[in-house]
Design a protein around this nucleic acid. Structure first.
Length: 319
DNA sequence: GCATGTCAAGTTGTG
DNA sequence: CACAACTTGACATGC
């Protein structure tokens, strides 16, 4: 294992802003593996588990490499791929971790990751995908969501992941009713999931003005995606939303988590939603300057985008 | 090798 | 009404 040297390039080791990378790498040779239920289905159970076990080990090894790189670069947060353990909760080919043939090695890898994360103050998060809808009126959808979130919670505990972030989901023509269903379903989650769960504003239905009160009622933090807020504005200014966002996390004694990205086709385009390769420093919200927060950067150029924004913003005294 | 269609799952808006 | 977009490609198949 390489010796970690922080800071690189003579820059200060920590700004008050902690920047985060999402899931993947553009240039670094760090790749995650996957498999599909269809590919597994024809195999005997034993072979399915062998294959899954190998993929899990590969992915954990890649996480270790990713974390070492991030620490070297002064990048303080990392969003893990949600299918790190592929098909974990899938009804037909899903599995309990204890069933994997190499489970001892896997636990050992997890422990090493958790230890490294703690040693280097690297903040880990998970962002289970769009199929997880606690506000759905369909019991089956909610049941699938609960099952998947519990798998994510198990993973989070093993790896030292602090945040499991999801969206509220669909509106079904009545946002208040949908948010009520989410509140009803929330207590059905285990403590290990509830203690990590956060809700994020999206760009089609739920704005910060919707999600902030919901989070307050549930006693969980709000992840502020400022790009979504710009795509789907509400009565709240960025300043106001930022104040409430920070207050919520501070009340819980935790460091605020936000998301930032730039529009691929510019703000004037008809569709500002798709993410650009890099972050335009002008898109960094003024009210966020100087705050002790974590900002995940959603940019196609991945680690290159994080490094570029950090170099562009660091020299300024505001950081 | 390389190109291409497919992958568990939900919901919404667009063409 | 089919399909892309969403945090994001990688896998599996066929040539």
């Amino acid at each position: 294992m390489q010796e970690i040297t922080v800071p690189p390039n003579g820059r200060p080791s920590r700004s008050t802003i902690r920047f985060g990378l999402c899931c993947l790498f553009a240039a670094q040779p760090i790749k995650f593996r996957q498999t599909t239920a269809q590919a597994l289905a024809p195999l005997p159970r034993e072979q399915q588990l062998e294959r899954l076990s190998a993929i899990c080990q590969h992915n954990l090894q890649q996480v270790s490499q990713a974390m070492r790189y991030l620490v070297e670069q002064g990048i303080g947060a990392f969003r893990l791929m949600s299918p790190l353990f592929p098909r974990h909760s899938q009804p037909q080919v899903g599995y309990a971790l204890a069933d994997l043939p190499e489970i001892e090695a896997i636990y050992h890898q997890c422990q090493a990751i958790r230890h490294f994360q703690g040693q280097h103050d690297l903040r880990l998060s998970l962002h289970p995908d769009q199929f997880n809808v606690l506000a759905s009126p369909h019991p089956q959808v909610v049941a699938n969501t609960l099952r998947e979130l519990e798998c994510q919670g198990e993973l989070a505990e093993l790896l030292g992941v602090e945040v499991i972030n999801i969206h509220v989901g669909g509106a079904y023509g009545d946002k208040q009713a949908a948010m009520g269903r989410l509140q009803t379903n929330f207590p059905r989650l285990s403590t290990r999931v509830r203690s990590r769960l956060t809700l994020e504003n999206d760009d089609v239905s739920y704005t910060p003005a919707d999600v902030l009160p919901l989070c307050r009622q549930l006693g969980i933090p709000f992840v502020y995606d400022v790009h979504h807020h710009r795509c789907l504005p509400d009565g709240l200014s960025c300043e106001r939303a930022t104040e409430e966002w920070l207050a919520l996390w501070q009340a819980l004694g935790r460091e605020p988590y936000g998301h930032l990205s730039s529009p691929k086709h510019g703000w004037a385009s008809a569709k500002p939603r798709p993410h650009a390769d890099y972050i335009d420093p002008a898109d960094f919200p003024d009210p966020w300057r100087g705050q002790a927060i974590t900002v995940d950067l959603e940019a196609k150029a991945k680690e290159l985008a994080v490094r570029r924004l950090m170099t562009e913003l660091m020299p300024q005294s505001a950081f």
